[in-house]
Simulated assay, not measured.
Amino acid sequence: MNYNINNKGYYGDFGGAFIPEMLYPNVEELRLNYLEIMRKPSFKKEFEQLLKDYVGRPSPLYFAKRLSKKYNTKIYLKREDLNHTGAHKVNNTIGQILMAQHLGKTRIIAETGAGQHGVATATVCALMGMQCIVYMGEIDMARQAPNVARMKMLGAEVRPAKSGSKTLKDATNEAIRDWINNPIDTHYIIGSVVGPHPYPDMVARFQAVISEEIKVQLKAQENTDKPDYVVACVGGGSNAAGAYYHFLNDTDVNLIAVEAAGKGVYSGESAATSMLGREGIIHGSKTLLMQTDDGQITEPYSISAGLDYPGIGPMHAHLYASGRAEFISITDDEAMIAGLELSQLEGIIPAIETSHALAIFNQKTFQKNDIVVINLSGRGDKDLENYIDYFKL
């Protein structure tokens, strides 16, 4: 079985472009040009140069000695938290801002949940001198205030989404509306492997630098370019897509996707899409999504603003449905405790999203010589208020 996208924009049964007629020209322009632009030597050179000199790549692959000792296995952390802007998101925004320039676009829109993608978009727009509008749910704006301030300081306009649950799903709806109204000059930088084809594939390709580096770094440290396990948290799933990309068709490498169970998978306050979702269409692609019996989207919940999305990207839906990846659900409480544990064992404060991935060691036992690579997708600066409130620090 092939786990990459096919030429019709599908991963197995999932993907495609289910879009209103008004959006067709925008999406089609991107679909017809994205691969050709990405293959241009001038594009590749500028992308790689910016990742090196501006983002600070390659990000280290760090052997977590004390964590490994505690869980009696070899745990490596891919340090995406050390990237400029503090997360993996900037890999994709650098790629997409260059894509927008090659397509002659002058105005950028984006959606954001935790704010990391919004900050990364505002950052590259400042770098390239482009107008930037970021849509963010009103609730997320309140719980991620430092990131809102960062975006404004970088020159972006942050527009609140006041409908629905006032979180990521609603911010995405607002961004799509904007794009319909401004089709000629605007490029929509989607922050995850979601949305209509070609977005899931394009974002995964820009994030694939993560797994590309893991292979080289592991070879130097363990004399193999194959870990036994690659673990990443999944909301929409761009950090996971990047960490898995070069291992997708290598079934010797086990893939583990960690979702947010919120207050419990079946508590009614959860974002565990693989457990609760059914096939449906959200934001232009066919995927697994949390919905009622009559097809209304169920409001997701997680303590992490970046994981409370009611669907997953079509690549991950296919990895789940085919059994290629193991999906594990982690509650708010489990994630928060794992975040504190990493802070105190390794001196690294992770984003709450990443803390979900770190929590799997209490659910799953690994062999002593297993090489377990966890994608440490973001740093915890933005979540300090949440940590403070939770632990009464």
Rank of each mutant, 00 (worst) to 15 (best):
G347V: 13
I210A: 05
L340V: 07
R143V: 09
L23F: 11
V203S: 11
R159S: 11
E36R: 15
I184V: 14
I37T: 07
A325Y: 11
G137V: 07
F366M: 12
H316N: 09
Y188D: 06
P198Q: 05
L50Q: 03
R205L: 04
S304I: 04
G164L: 09
C125W: 00
E29I: 02
D308Y: 07
Q101H: 05
A357K: 00
Q291M: 13
I108V: 13
H356Y: 09
Y320H: 14
K105A: 04
T93V: 06
V158T: 05
A272Y: 06
A240W: 09
A156P: 03
A357W: 02
E222D: 15
T224A: 11
D53Y: 08
V119L: 05
A142C: 10
F47L: 14
Y266V: 11
N33D: 13
H88G: 04
T85K: 02
I303Y: 06
A243C: 09
G311K: 08
R79V: 07
E353C: 08
D185G: 00
F47W: 14
E346F: 02
Q96R: 04
N147M: 03
L255S: 06
E213K: 02
L307P: 03
I281P: 02
A114D: 07
I337L: 15
M128K: 05
A120E: 00
T224Q: 10
V134K: 04
K44T: 13
A271E: 00
V209C: 04
H88M: 06
G262D: 07
F391N: 10
S343D: 09
F14P: 01
F43H: 07
G323F: 14
E174L: 12
E21Y: 09
R66A: 11
S68Q: 02
D333E: 15
G195P: 12
I360G: 07
N147C: 01
D81H: 01
Y245I: 00
S355K: 08
G237P: 15
A171Q: 03
V27N: 12
G86N: 04
N91P: 03
A110D: 12
M315Q: 15
E111F: 10
L342F: 05
V373P: 00
A240L: 11
T224L: 11
R177K: 15
F366T: 12
L168V: 10
V124Q: 01
T287C: 09
D178S: 02
G164R: 05
I282R: 02
R31A: 08
D53K: 03
D201N: 14
S42W: 03
Y188N: 08
D294T: 14
Q363A: 07
R159K: 13
D81I: 01
G347D: 13
T93R: 00
E269H: 13
A175Q: 06
K44R: 15
K44P: 07
G378A: 06
E299A: 13
E80T: 00
